[in-house]
């Protein structure tokens, strides 16, 4: 089993890449690999509740984050520094996450077999 990191450092809205990127992460999990999702930088905003892209007729892909446990994706990391920078607290996020410092995340990242970002 390999450890695969999927890093989201931009909004999931506004383009189809976010959706196609999550499809990749789900697929990796379906192949029984260890999947870690990491939200850093501007990407932490992708997790906030009450996003309503439907008004723009954009597909809302936030709800699928709630499906991650079905596919045994239980490691969702957010970078503490980015949360601070964007003034977010965990209660404002759609799903429960592990907030870790940049340094602690980097230690894990160094051990990954493959890293994906988009």
């Amino acid at each position: 089993m390999k450890t695969l990191f999927f890093i989201i450092n931009k909004s999931l809205q506004g383009n189809v890449c976010g959706q196609e990127f999550l499809d990749m992460a789900l697929m990796a999990a379906a192949f029984d690999q260890k999947v870690v999702l990491l939200f850093e930088g501007e990407g932490v905003n992708a997790l906030v509740k009450n996003q309503c892209p439907d008004g723009l007729q954009l597909k809302n892909i936030v709800p699928v984050l709630n499906a991650l446990p079905i596919y045994d994706i239980n490691d969702v990391l957010v970078e503490e520094e980015s949360m601070t920078m964007w003034g977010l607290v965990e209660e404002e996020l759609e799903i429960s996450v592990h907030a870790l410092s940049r340094r602690a995340i980097k230690d894990q990242l160094n051990l990954a077999d493959h890293v994906f970002s988009f």
Partner: peptide, 11 residues
């Protein structure tokens, strides 16, 4: 309804 998502065959 819950996830606004359609899984592929494997999922």
């Amino acid at each position: 309804d819950e996830f606004n998502h359609q899984p592929n065959a494997r999922l």
